[in-house]
Write a protein that binds this DNA or RNA. Structure first.
Length: 259
DNA sequence: GTTGAGCGTT
């Protein structure tokens, strides 16, 4: 998959995972490798991808062999511009080897004293609901069932946080953060919006009254019946086509145009 | 061709 060069978890015996956030959607593990490899021995790099589309989710996991190197990478790569985007590097909290890190000395010996205090308010996830529903519908594979139940516990935790995130809206931060850019872009957008904001052009056609095919005629209609038959039975389309012999609709168009 | 808070695979 999107691994560094292996299938599945390589060796989680003495590795420390780092969570890299804010990376571009096109950034791959190979792109992050040189950045992290420069500060230590990178064991593996994993980038979670979407199950449906298969695209990057915007974050990656970098596994280091030693904690000091990992910390160094966090301190050096956190906030760096990668692929035109400022990435956020921090120690992975939740994960298969989170226990090791938690009971280890990483969390205590290497506190995130970066002072960055980035987005510390988790709002919500984008998957779960849609994916969960998708899997529920096709719950014919028991293999996936096991997978689902595995992360079900994780979902419970998120569900609680989501409830209290009701007060805050993700739009608030975005609007303030992109104040400058939003201003310029919004102006442009609005200009075009106003330009094309003329849905009042209904152009009422008086011909509607004399339109024969618009009037609710009974199922025994003449022209309507013919057209319907044409679409219903393409095999018989040879009939009207032969009569047409030209290229456009004969009687119908003529009657309307001639008036 | 799109999006932008967050936590992971065989």
């Amino acid at each position: 998959m999107s691994h560094f060069g292996r299938s599945g978890p390589p060796d989680i015996k003495d590795t420390f995972s780092l969570l890299v956030l804010n990376i571009t959607f096109r950034t791959t593990a190979d792109d992050l490798f040189p950045f992290f490899d420069k500060y230590g021995k990178v064991v593996d790099i994993f980038i979670p991808r979407d199950r449906r589309t298969g695209e990057s989710r915007g974050f990656a996991f970098v596994r280091y062999k030693y904690a000091d190197e990992a910390q160094k990478a966090v301190d050096r790569l956190d906030g760096r511009i990668v692929d035109g985007r400022e990435i956020t590097v921090q120690f992975a909290k939740y994960g298969p080897n989170a226990e090791r890190i938690h009971k280890g000395r990483i969390a205590e010996t290497f506190p995130r004293s970066r002072g960055r205090s980035r987005s510390h308010s988790p709002r919500r996830r984008y998957r779960d609901d849609s994916r969960d529903r998708d899997y529920r519908r096709r719950s014919r594979s028991r293999s996936y069932d096991r997978y689902e139940s595995d992360r079900y516990r994780g979902r419970e935790r998120d569900y609680r946080r989501r409830s209290r995130s009701r007060s805050a809206s993700p739009d608030y931060r975005r609007g303030r953060s992109r104040g400058r850019y939003d201003d310029g872009r919004r102006n442009l957008s609005r200009s075009r919006s106003i330009d094309s904001a003329s849905p009042t052009r209904h152009t009422p056609s008086p011909k509607r009254s004399l339109s024969p095919h618009v009037t609710p005629s009974p199922p025994r209609g003449g022209s309507q019946d013919r057209r319907s038959r044409e679409e219903r039975s393409p095999s018989q389309s040879i009939s009207p086509r032969g009569r047409s012999a030209g290229s456009r609709s004969p009687s119908l168009h003529k009657s309307d145009a001639d008036d």
